[in-house]
Design a protein around this nucleic acid. Sequence first.
DNA 1: TATTTTGGTATCCTCAAAGATACTAACCCG
DNA 2: CGGGTTAGTATCTTTGAGGATACCAAAATA
Lengths: 114, 114
Amino acid sequence: MQDIEKHLLHRDVQDALELIGGRWRGAIMTSLCGSPKRFSELKEDLKPITSRVLTKELRYLEQNKLINVERSTAAANSVLYTHSEHGSSCGPIILQLRDWAIKHREIMLEYLKE
Amino acid sequence: MQDIEKHLLHRDVQDALELIGGRWRGAIMTSLCGSPKRFSELKEDLKPITSRVLTKELRYLEQNKLINVERSTAAANSVLYTHSEHGSSCGPIILQLRDWAIKHREIMLEYLKE
DNA sequence: TATTTTGGTATCCTCAAAGATACTAACCCG
DNA sequence: CGGGTTAGTATCTTTGAGGATACCAAAATA
């Protein structure tokens, strides 16, 4: 492996972690794994997130094509958030992150016992 | 899937993203995927990271058992950072994150063309 | 012995992410 | 018509991650 490639490698990882990192983005994508949701459902699921932050993060994810936003023209006050095709492709990674976090917790508990 | 389980699901993901999220943690773990490294090698690889931040993040990763720190008793001014057993188990996930980020970049370029 | 390298500390500062709180236009339901 | 719900905005404030800069003791090296 060349130096340049190594360098690019962690730059890519940084990019990925900016997309789904931070306090809420990963959680939002996770919440949408189960099923499409409306704003209020997301807010409930991610409590104690605030409207302001949820709006901002949803706009970010929309701009980065990770979610689709169906602002139904007919019944106006209803907006559906769903994974985009590419957004749903991070589902498996998220599941692995979850499993890894659970394993991590167990390992930390082991150390605390000793 | 029950509501409670859904709730736990994204909490776990948030935990994982705290462990390897932020500006540098994922990159450090990535850099250590290739081979064990010394402080100065990490600093070079992760340029423009500062000593202060690198130290802080390494201590965090050490406390969370994701890396081992070999402070060689014999030759004192030499410290080796390596993945712990559990730390190395996030290697595959990191590779997938990298692939996913690369794919994301391509997709965004597609949209810009149109 | 002098100099450089290594692996850090010590302070101070900035800025952006996130929270608290209040408010609102449009709709929908009875 | 009136009250509640939906999907947000508008301000203001806080917090802490991360950066800039300077400094340092111990060890290696020349």
